[in-house]
């Protein structure tokens, strides 16, 4: 059962990655050029039909997968690179530094990511970059917290005490003992964070705060579909389904990894 969860997650995530990579090499039709074949229903040769500007929907979905991966990787990467060391520092040093870091994290956590994105878009203009920055900044606290919680657990263990008794420096303890033991936690958080980033990116694009036209992103496609909602509801299905499946995939992957990597569960087996 647990294994099935992980496998379904892997398949869905694999599909998104495949689509994204494929879009770099090939798309059935030009994903940007406007044609007169407007609003064709699913069929041949346009498998999923065409949108209001006569562009092949399947081609646009493939490009959308690429952007959702780029946004996910960079925003989660930024959040992890900033959040994990902060959390480890807070957990290892404790005291006022810990208190300060966690309170700042609370404040950032309480600040709506959407509002942050709107502020950034107002200041720097709407682009993929501002969307990634907003999502990344908003996700830092999640990484800092999980890293801190894991660090506190590791620091309390006897092997860290033994490392101190062996004269290992703080850096050595952080690199050799703390990080390898919290890495699985961070990996799980990254997968779940990836799902949240995809959803957030779609929301931002839908609102016109993310990647600008004519680049097709899933969120922007959803917005375009809204114009023909009453006559062609199937237009909203494709980007909606893509978002839902990608988010589901990364969530299942995260959950599945948590179960596989949890040493307590492994010990039982």
């Amino acid at each position: 059962m647990r294994k099935a969860q992980l496998n379904i997650g892997l398949v869905l995530v694999g599909l998104v990655i495949l689509a994204g990579v494929l879009s770099l090499l090939w798309t059935p039709y030009d994903p940007i050029r406007v044609t007169s074949n407007r609003l064709l229903p699913p069929g041949w040769p346009h498998l999923l039909g065409t949108d209001g500007m006569g562009i092949d929907i399947a081609s646009r979905l493939l490009i959308g997968a690429r952007y959702c991966l780029i946004v996910g990787v960079i925003s989660v990467g930024v959040a992890a690179v900033v959040g994990v060391p902060l959390g480890m520092l807070a957990g290892m040093r404790g005291g006022w530094l810990d208190e300060l870091t966690m309170r700042v994290a609370d404040i950032v956590y309480a600040f709506p990511a959407l509002l942050l994105a709107m502020l950034l878009a107002a200041a720097f203009g709407a682009s993929t970059g501002t969307a990634m920055a907003a999502i990344g900044i908003a996700t830092i606290p999640a990484f800092a917290r999980i890293a801190r919680a894991g660090t506190l657990q590791v620091v309390a263990s006897d092997f860290v005490l033994a490392a101190k008794a062996a004269g290992t420096s703080r850096w050595g303890i952080a690199a050799r003992h703390v990080f390898p033991n919290i890495a699985p936690l961070v990996g799980v958080q990254a997968s779940v964070g990836f799902a949240m980033a995809i959803l957030a990116e779609a929301a931002l694009s839908y609102l016109g705060l993310g990647t600008p036209r004519p680049t097709p992103t899933w969120g922007a496609m959803l917005r375009d579909a809204q114009d023909v909602w009453y006559t062609q509801p199937v237009q909203a299905l494709w980007p909606g389904l893509s978002i839902a499946l990608a988010v589901l995939g990364f969530n299942l992957l995260g959950d599945g990894m948590r179960d596989v990597l949890d040493p307590r569960l492994r010990e039982v087996k």
Binding site: S157, F159, A163, A166, G167, S169, G172, H177, P180, N181
Partner: peptide, 22 residues
């Protein structure tokens, strides 16, 4: 709990020999 589960026995045992201070 006194042996780091993610380190090989060789690095565990030589840890006291790797510290600069030691």
């Amino acid at each position: 709990s006194s042996l780091n589960p993610r380190m090989r026995v060789g690095s565990i045992i030589t840890e006291p020999l790797r510290s600069k201070r030691v």
